[in-house]
């Protein structure tokens, strides 16, 4: 029963730490430790980040649990603190504006969302939000891409989805990623609308959610083709990059970072 023994040891260590902490916490303010700090700080509430997904009439959730899995991976790999259960919002809901990030998945076609919903999405983007569209067909059907293009044409008149260049900061916001892989690897690039110095909308066409989603059994629901586990790992890395870009924007394009990366030959 090694597992039980480790649990006991961990529990004992926790109790010791708690016992050691109490007298220090009882001290008067102003008595700082050797570093000038209190090394035994109590945990506080955490400011979490939601990864909401848009719900609409139709196939709005072709890869159930994809965002939840991404939230887990973000917590494990980065300092982001996503919520454990990402929310689901509708375009006409006031909760749309609870988070300046929105994940929109779809398969086949994206049905019309209605004028009110489109107005809300336009305001969402104008105020600084970012929408990631994920085509679950992975390149087999261009219906979703066509409808997303039309939708964006209506809510961002004059803007067009264009190829996000390979040297865009999106590919190095956390990992150095060369190709935006998903469940498939049909496309070697993503499309985006770049305005006001930021990506307002992103269209991923390699079924990113399909690579992330895990079923009740704990196993990944869909196989990644043709690269298998490696491709899935790269899909996770790209998904992490998207969220780091969403929260830090072009932070990794700052001169200090670029110079350091080039100096270390870690980025071409």
């Amino acid at each position: 029963m090694p597992r039980t023994r480790r649990s006991l040891l961990a529990g004992a260590a926790g109790l010791c730490a708690a016992a050691a902490t109490r007298p220090l916490r009882a001290q008067e303010p102003g008595l700082f430790g050797p570093l000038g700090g209190d090394e035994f700080r109590e945990p506080t509430a955490v400011l979490t980040v939601d990864l909401p997904q848009l719900q609409y009439p139709g196939k709005w959730n072709p890869r159930p649990g994809a965002m939840r899995e991404l939230a887990v991976e973000l917590r494990l790999r980065t300092r982001l603190e996503p919520v454990r259960e990402p929310s689901v919002v509708t375009a006409d809901s006031r909760r749309l504006f609870d988070t300046p990030f929105l994940y929109v998945a779809g398969e086949g076609n994206l049905p019309p969302l209605g004028a009110a919903a489109e107005t809300a999405l336009g305001r969402f983007l104008d105020l600084g939000g970012m929408i990631v569209f994920d085509a679950a067909d992975g390149g087999a059907d261009l219906g979703f891409e066509k409808d997303v293009t039309a939708l964006l044409g209506r809510i961002l008149p004059g803007a067009a989805l264009t190829r996000v260049a390979a040297d865009h900061v999106l590919y190095r916001s956390f990992y150095l990623v060369e190709t935006p892989l998903g469940r498939t690897s049909t496309f070697d690039h993503v499309l985006g609308i770049h305005e006001e110095g930021r990506l307002k909308a992103l269209l991923v066409r390699n079924d990113l959610g399909g690579a992330l989603a895990r079923g009740e059994s704990g196993l990944f629901t869909w196989p990644c083709v043709p690269g298998g586990a490696d491709q899935r790992e790269w899909a996770f890395r790209f998904a992490v990059n998207i969220l780091l870009y969403a929260t830090c924007t072009d932070y990794k394009a700052d001169r200090a970072h670029v110079e350091t990366l080039l100096r270390n030959r870690r980025w071409r």
Binding site: R79, L80, E81, G128, G197, A246, T247, Y251
Partner: peptide, 15 residues
């Protein structure tokens, strides 16, 4: 930590 508050201030200052 990256979050929406960091994003907002960075966007404002960077602009």
């Amino acid at each position: 930590r990256p979050d929406w508050d960091v994003r907002a201030l960075r966007t404002l200052l960077g602009r």
